[in-house]
Amino acid sequence: MVQRLLPRLMAALLAGLCVAPAAQAGLFDDEEARARINALRNETGSRLDKLEASARAQLELANQIEQLKAEIARLRGENEVLSNDLVNANKRQKDFYVDLDNRLRKIEAPAAAATEVQPQAAPAAAADPAAESRDYEAALTQLRGGKYKEAAVSFIAFTKAYPSSSFLPSAHFWAASALYQQKDNIGAAEHYGKVASQWPEDSRAPDALLGLASTQQARNDNVGATRSLEKLISRYPSSSAAQIARQRLKK
């Protein structure tokens, strides 16, 4: 804009400078010369006004650009926060799902087992859910504390006292673990086998098969151990227990 206006301004200036010698040559009289100068002055003035106006417009434009930049930055910030929220929401949803899935498995497995294996099992004398979970926790605490003998007794007692408990597969599993720790391989095999056969859908079933194989190995029953490990791999190919089983079979 400025660049385009300036040459024209220069032309006006040159024209203005020509005026004086021309007047001397007598081509214009004073009146006319004055009128021309006035006209030129007005024109230059108005062009200068335009020039200033354009500079002012550029300033205005620069301010607007500044404001637009601020607006873009604000939007970018919003975008950053939203994508972060999305990442967090996705992660939280996944956590929720895993948690829910684990809970559902615990509920579904014993229910399925109950209908299949003990269809007519009379519900034991109105089980007290508070006592049930208290006894289970107590046995678990013994196990955690390394009191394997007591823990085994408690878990076996639990399986008898609460035959319809949702903790039943877990109780058998922990009883087996406690017995295995005491080198009671026969007792351990019985409970591991129970979990694997009665609650094949339970999340502990693969580990139970692995435990069963361990007890068989301990009794030098290599054929039985191999069979258990193969069963584990074919039934639960993606479980972490199956991974261990594959490693053991390689040896």
């Binding site: 601020a70 604000r74 970018r76 910030g77 919003e78 950053e80």
Partner: peptide
């Protein structure tokens, strides 16, 4: 940086 409209 304030590239997102506020210093972060």
């Amino acid at each position: 940086s304030d590239r997102g409209g506020s210093p972060q």
